[in-house]
Design a protein around this nucleic acid. Structure first.
Lengths: 238, 238
DNA sequence: ACCTGAACACCGTTCAAGT
DNA sequence: ACCTGAACACCGTTCAAGT
């Protein structure tokens, strides 16, 4: 009896099952979605799994390797939200929207992945999707490659930026966000006439508007580049 | 004599001068530019200043307040690199280039600022510059505000993304970066035909090309939106 | 008035010890 | 074969004590 007493006091612990990479990834997603200061710490993960924090190192070389696996899961979740049968522009638009939605669901993950590649299956699927879309738009070869990177890297950066903001302690986030309606409202009209003249408009801009403008800028660029190439080829042929 | 012995053994310490916010900011810039794992830690800063690490808290409420002051200095450095007399497009292009250059000079700072505002003088100057440029492009009111945010936030996100990548330990950065020439080269041709077909082009894309495509996409968007508004106004007038 | 330095509550990770 | 838990080398920050 004495030998089981510590297991007794934490009845949720272990539940008889062995730890597995799968279980660790799923627990990571749960705590990442729950948010908070310790949204993705090894100790919090051990708590969620009901085991010693360091047990994770039996299944993943280090926390970074776990992060990449977890992140690839979130990429899959975003991908699954993109409907089939859309034309290239709507397909990329949907991918951008899903990436933001899922990214905000697991902000600690997307903020850490803003400049990373998972090099795992779901990333391959997303790359294939974007390459298919830019091909459908009319880009080939090096043009397709550059514009794929432009789109993919930008979405990653935007989502990571949004997510990092959400991770902030509410008080600091508020200070950063309310800058437009507070500090900027007090800007010296002599030195900063443009700011002074647009103070109301600057305070009224929403994240949705900004994200839409960013995504549309990228889609427009792909479309225009394809038109440029077509025009050049027509000129060469004629 | 005994009372001075500890000061003796560290002759570079204090050098008689009081600590000041200025001195702390400049020391922060020096260690941030030098890079490394402890590029911006309180302990490393104390070492650089030749004083106890916690002395910094006499002059800044916390590390975040110091970060914002340091970041605003880097914004000023970027701004000073933008030549006068350029037309709006070249002015924004120059700002984007200088932001990247300075951001990579202090990667630890720009990676931390990717989703932040400093709410300090040099940020006001940059906002004024961008607003002036979009106004020159032909945007007014809410359009000017949204497209300013689109441009400003995107540059911040791109530079932060680049900087975060550079901060990585070389081995991990290499793994992430070489993905295109390693993992992706091994992609299954059946499942990922687009990737397989563009493997060489994907591996050959440079950061400079990607950054140029991203920036030009934003500039094009501003120009096209202005043209749209002009066309709508002409239609309403005629 | 300002700086010091021990201390606290955290991190990720290692490793000898358990089972 | 796998997990445990003490320990290590770090963080940012607080606070009583020095000068």
């Amino acid at each position: 009896m004495a030998t089981h007493s510590s297991a007794r006091t934490a009845t949720s612990k272990r539940s008889g099952s062995q730890l597995s990479p799968e279980a660790i990834i799923e627990a990571s997603l749960r705590i990442a979605a729950r948010g908070g200061d310790d949204a993705f710490t090894v100790r919090r993960l051990g708590q969620e799994l009901g085991c010693d924090p360091t047990a994770v190192y039996r299944h993943f070389r280090d926390k970074d390797e776990l992060l990449l696996s977890v992140a690839d899961r979130t990429l899959g979740e975003a991908l699954d939200g993109v409907p089939h049968g859309l034309a290239w522009r709507d397909r990329l638009r949907a991918l951008a929207a899903e990436s933001l939605r899922v990214g905000m669901k697991y902000p600690v993950v997307s903020s850490l992945m803003a400049s990373r590649t998972t090099r795992r299956p779901n990333e391959f699927r997303i790359v294939e999707l974007i390459l298919g879309a830019v091909h459908e738009a009319g880009l080939t070869g090096a043009d397709a490659a550059v514009h794929y990177r432009m789109f993919g890297d930008s979405i990653l950066a935007y989502v990571g930026q949004h997510a990092a903001l959400q991770l902030f302690a509410p008080t600091e986030r508020e200070a950063d966000q309310s800058a437009w309606s507070r500090e900027y409202r007090l800007a010296d009209r002599e030195r900063f006439p443009r700011i002074a003249g647009l103070v109301e408009e600057l305070a009224a801009v929403t994240h949705e508007e900004i994200y839409a403008a960013r995504v549309e800028a990228l889609l427009d660029k792909i479309e225009r580049r394809a038109a440029e190439v077509r025009a050049a080829e027509a000129a060469a042929d004629g």
